[in-house]
Amino acid sequence: MGQGPYRDKPAGPAAASTARGRKPTELLNYVAATWDKQDLSLRRHARVVARALRTR
């Protein structure tokens, strides 16, 4: 089993894959919540990352 708040989920390759996908999503959620404060280059990068995640 995993540790911390995800301790009920199994650890291993599937859990690692889920964790990798969760980090960019958390970052994009933060950027979206603070969109008006972000500069143009970060907004562009966030759009590219979001598109890349969507095509997985």
Score class of each variant (00 low, 15 high):
24 P>V: 02
6 Y>P: 00
24 P>Q: 03
33 A>K: 14
8 D>H: 15
51 R>I: 02
36 D>V: 07
28 L>E: 01
20 R>I: 01
32 A>R: 15
22 R>V: 11
34 T>P: 02
40 L>T: 10
44 R>P: 00
50 A>P: 02
39 D>F: 04
37 K>E: 13
7 R>T: 07
53 L>Y: 01
14 A>Y: 05
37 K>Q: 14
47 R>F: 05
44 R>K: 15
53 L>G: 06
24 P>N: 03
6 Y>K: 11
21 G>H: 10
56 R>S: 07
34 T>C: 09
20 R>K: 08
38 Q>M: 13
48 V>K: 15
46 A>E: 02
17 S>N: 08
4 G>T: 12
34 T>R: 08
9 K>W: 05
22 R>F: 11
34 T>A: 09
1 M>W: 07
52 A>V: 03
11 A>Q: 10
25 T>S: 13
30 Y>D: 07
5 P>Y: 03
46 A>P: 11
28 L>K: 02
14 A>W: 03
5 P>M: 08
1 M>T: 07
21 G>N: 11
13 P>R: 12
6 Y>A: 12
37 K>F: 08
16 A>P: 00
46 A>F: 01
1 M>C: 04
11 A>R: 13
48 V>G: 05
22 R>M: 06
10 P>M: 08
40 L>M: 04
18 T>I: 01
18 T>E: 08
22 R>C: 03
26 E>N: 06
31 V>E: 00
20 R>F: 08
36 D>N: 14
23 K>Y: 10
41 S>Y: 13
5 P>D: 04
22 R>D: 10
32 A>Q: 15
39 D>E: 12
22 R>W: 08
30 Y>A: 12
18 T>K: 08
44 R>G: 11
44 R>S: 09
48 V>M: 13
23 K>I: 15
42 L>G: 07
24 P>C: 01
29 N>G: 10
40 L>P: 07
17 S>G: 05
21 G>M: 10
43 R>H: 05
2 G>K: 14
15 A>K: 10
33 A>C: 01
38 Q>W: 02
47 R>W: 06
50 A>S: 13
51 R>E: 05
45 H>G: 05
20 R>P: 00
12 G>A: 09
23 K>F: 12
29 N>W: 04
55 T>P: 00
29 N>P: 00
47 R>Y: 07
55 T>D: 06
51 R>T: 06
17 S>Y: 05
4 G>I: 09
3 Q>H: 12
34 T>Y: 06
12 G>L: 09
11 A>G: 04
36 D>R: 15
34 T>S: 12
6 Y>M: 09
38 Q>H: 02
32 A>F: 03
7 R>S: 14
46 A>L: 03
38 Q>R: 11
14 A>D: 04
39 D>A: 05
24 P>T: 03
56 R>V: 09
40 L>E: 14
47 R>L: 11
21 G>F: 10
26 E>S: 07
34 T>N: 15
39 D>H: 11
42 L>V: 15
15 A>I: 02
47 R>D: 05
28 L>H: 01
31 V>L: 06
24 P>M: 01
22 R>A: 12
31 V>C: 01
6 Y>S: 13
41 S>D: 14
28 L>W: 01
23 K>A: 15
31 V>P: 02
53 L>R: 09
43 R>S: 01
3 Q>S: 13
55 T>L: 00
38 Q>T: 12
24 P>W: 00
43 R>M: 04
7 R>N: 12
33 A>P: 00
7 R>M: 10
37 K>R: 14
55 T>H: 03
35 W>T: 04
23 K>P: 00
